[in-house]
Computed example of a mutant assay.
Amino acid sequence: MTARRLPVVPRPYRGELLSSWLARVACRYGLTHQALAEWMTDGGRSFSPIQSVDDRLPAPEQVRQWAWSCGVDPERLLRLSLSRRHPQRPNSWYTCRGPEWAPSAMIGSPAVCLACLAADHTADRDSWLRADWVLAEHCICPKHGHLLRDRCLGCGHRLSVAFRLREGQARAVCSRCEALLIDRGGEDDAPRDAALIEAALSIQQQVAQIVDGEGPAHEQLGQALATLWAPLDHPAAARPVLALWLNQAGWRCPYEVRHAVGVAMPLGQLPVGWRFVTLLAVNDVFGVNPDGVATSSETAIRLARRAASRRMRAMPPPLHGMATGPLPRSSAEYERLANQILADPRWTAAQCLSQRKRYSARARLIDAALSRKG
């Protein structure tokens, strides 16, 4: 069976995801983009639907098949692939669906800027998904200054984007509740700190330049991010080192981000809000372009020291009855160490400092006390 031609096909936008363009084509025929990609091949025998669209590195023969069926220059479609846009970027610096994501899987449904989709509606053109929305560090829209949305305002579920034909135009909707994804203004807009947004945009841009550039800088940045999301003190801890930077008493790691604790490259697996917080933290602690982890500042040294090492996390559990590492301290010894800290002149002098500085002084004294032998 030969490939089939389609009579009505919208043209791709310059900054669009390949899967977004296919979805806009497909919605005009009542199909999903996976089903359309399968239909355009040889009766669906050559490619399975789950492999039909890869925004990062699509198969050239598939792209040529889609281009022929849609009457589009194949080179124009290949330019939509993320590998063409960001040839130096590692796969781990794209967003993914979370703990079930695998390197061979497709990129998850991106967070969206509702103001951008509203602008498409106002201009009376198709809604479309911007390729920058799947970059791991991209959490603020540089055009509108809005935090991207990864949850539906209608049903509250994690956003999964679909396209529906409305008045002759493809519109982005939530695939669960069919709510139109558009910036309605008023109650949908959270209060924004202009200075904070400007700072986050600057950090976001610097991170993008590092990740898309050559050299080891992106590896150092990835190491700093992994340190912030390393388990706190113990390899099996559910709290990340980031909890120390947040400095909130009784803070517990939310369930939606626990899968990122201990992950080597956590940023792309986090919801948008947590990506935003993580970028602010890594800039504050290590700097956007860290020259090695745990050497940038006193805060970086303290946080890196509290991170459970990757070597410890990779070690198998000890056999039953076999002790490994130093023996645990007794309650009496911990009480003696606590009394030493309380009697230390440096702790007495710290009482006149601010709460944040007292916490830092206390942490240094605790680290010093625990590092002593005997």
Rank of each mutant, 00 (worst) to 15 (best):
A314V: 06
R313A: 01
E187M: 12
A323N: 03
L370Q: 09
Q209W: 11
Q205K: 13
L180P: 00
A136Y: 06
S127V: 01
A264K: 05
G325I: 00
A281N: 03
Q248S: 11
A200H: 04
W101P: 00
E298N: 15
R125Y: 02
W245S: 06
K143D: 15
G213W: 11
R372N: 09
P90W: 09
I301R: 10
A195H: 08
A23H: 03
S92H: 03
I50M: 12
P87I: 15
A119F: 09
Q65R: 06
I140C: 09
V261M: 02
Q248K: 08
I107M: 02
P7T: 11
L370V: 08
D55V: 10
G186C: 12
R346A: 14
N339P: 11
V25H: 11
A281F: 09
R184F: 03
L181V: 06
A224D: 08
Y255K: 12
A300C: 01
W128F: 10
A59K: 05
L18V: 07
A208G: 15
N339Q: 14
S202F: 00
Q204M: 12
A123Q: 07
V112A: 10
P318A: 08
E100Y: 04
L17M: 13
V207H: 06
E187W: 14
P7V: 13
S52A: 15
V272G: 03
S202N: 08
C177F: 05
A368M: 12
F286W: 06
Y13G: 10
S371M: 04
M265K: 07
A59D: 13
Q340N: 09
G268V: 03
A243E: 06
R56A: 11
R311F: 11
C155D: 14
Q88E: 13
N283E: 14
A115S: 09
M315S: 13
G168F: 00
S83I: 12
A67V: 05
L225M: 05
G98R: 01
R311G: 04
D284W: 07
R310C: 11
P240T: 02
V285D: 03
A304C: 03
L153M: 14
Q205L: 14
P103E: 01
F286Y: 12
L365V: 13
L129Y: 06
A264Q: 11
E219G: 10
L279G: 01
A323M: 07
I197Y: 00
Q248N: 04
M106D: 01
L279K: 02
C155L: 02
R125K: 10
R11Y: 11
S360N: 04
D54G: 08
H144K: 04
A236Y: 02
S83R: 15
R362T: 02
S175K: 08
P271K: 04
S296I: 00
A35S: 13
L353Q: 14
G30V: 08
A172D: 02
A200T: 02
C96M: 06
L117N: 03
K357F: 07
V8K: 10
P87T: 10
E256Y: 03
M315A: 14
W229A: 01
M106W: 06
V261S: 05
P290D: 05
I210F: 01
V261H: 01
D188C: 06
L180D: 12
V9H: 00
G374A: 11
A119E: 09
G15E: 15
A361H: 07
A230V: 00
L319A: 14
P240F: 01
R85I: 12
N289E: 14
S81V: 11
P271I: 06
V241W: 01
W66L: 12
L353G: 04
I50Q: 13
L337W: 07
C96W: 13
